[in-house]
C-alpha cells in the first residue's frame, strides 16, 4: 500500500494520473482499479465518477465492476489484512475451528476491522497452499499449518497496539 495522503483532492490527482497512464490498455478498468487499490488500500467511492469519465463508461458500469470482485474494497482496511482460507483442503485440517478462534481473538467478524484498527479479517477461498493447510495470508506472506497458537503468535508479532498503549 502506498502512502498517498487522504485528502480528496490528492485522491483525484492520483486517479487521474493512473488513468492517463493506463487508459490505452485494452480492458483498462481492472488494471486501473488494481493500481488504485495498491496505492490507497481501497477504492474510494467518490472516485468512481472520475474513472467513469476517464474511460467513457457509466458510473453504474464502474460500480458494477468494483462491487463484483471480492478483492476490491470501498473502505480503508486496517493496518494488516489477514485472510483465512475457508476452502475444503483447509477445512480438512481444522480451518473451521481456526475461523472461530480468529474472530474471537481479534474481536471482529469476517470483513470487519478490529477495534484498534490493526487487523482486517477476510475470508479467502484457496491460497494454493493446500499441501500445508490450514493456510493464512497476511499482506503478501502466506503461512502454512496455522493452528490457534500459531495464529496468536502471528497476530502478536504484527500487533503494535500494545506498544502504543505503553
Amino acid at each position: 500500500m502506498g502512502l498517498a495522503s487522504n485528502s480528496p483532492l490528492e485522491h483525484e490527482n492520483l486517479v487521474e494520473r493512473i488513468i492517463k497512464e493506463l487508459q490505452d490498455l485494452p480492458g483498462a478498468l481492472l488494471p486501473i482499479l488494481h493500481r488504485l487499490q495498491d496505492e490507497l488500500g481501497f477504492i474510494p467511492p467518490a472516485l468512481l465518477p472520475v474513472i467513469a469519465t476517464g474511460l467513457n463508461l457509466s458510473r453504474a458500469e464502474v460500480h458494477g465492476v468494483v462491487s463484483f470482485y471480492h478483492y476490491f474494497r470501498s473502505s480503508p482496511p486496517g493496518r494488516n489484512t489477514i485472510q483465512i482460507c475457508r476452502a475444503e483442503s483447509c477445512q480438512a485440517m481444522g480451518s473451521r475451528a481456526l475461523e472461530v478462534h480468529a474472530q474471537r481473538a481479534l474481536r471482529c467478524k469476517f470483513n470487519q476491522t478490529s477495534a484498534d484498527g490493526e487487523f482486517t479479517l477476510l475470508a479467502v477461498y484457496c491460497l494454493g497452499n493446500c499441501a500445508c493447510s490450514p493456510a493464512v495470508r497476511v499482506g503478501d506472506e502466506v503461512y502454512g499449518h496455522v493452528d490457534a497458537a500459531k495464529f496468536d503468535s502471528l497476530v502478536a508479532a504484527l500487533s503494535t497496539s500494545e506498544v502504543q498503549v505503553k
Partner: peptide, 26 residues
C-alpha cells in the same frame, strides 16, 4: 500479465474473457 480480483468464477473461460475486457466476470 493481468491480475484477477478474487472471483472464483473467473476461472470459467468466458467469465475470464469478460474480466480481461474490464467488465464484471459474468
Amino acid at each position: 500479465l493481468r491480475l484477477g480480483a478474487g472471483a472464483y468464477i473467473c476461472g470459467e473461460e468466458t467469465s475470464m474473457l469478460e474480466s480481461l475486457e474490464g467488465k464484471r466476470g459474468e
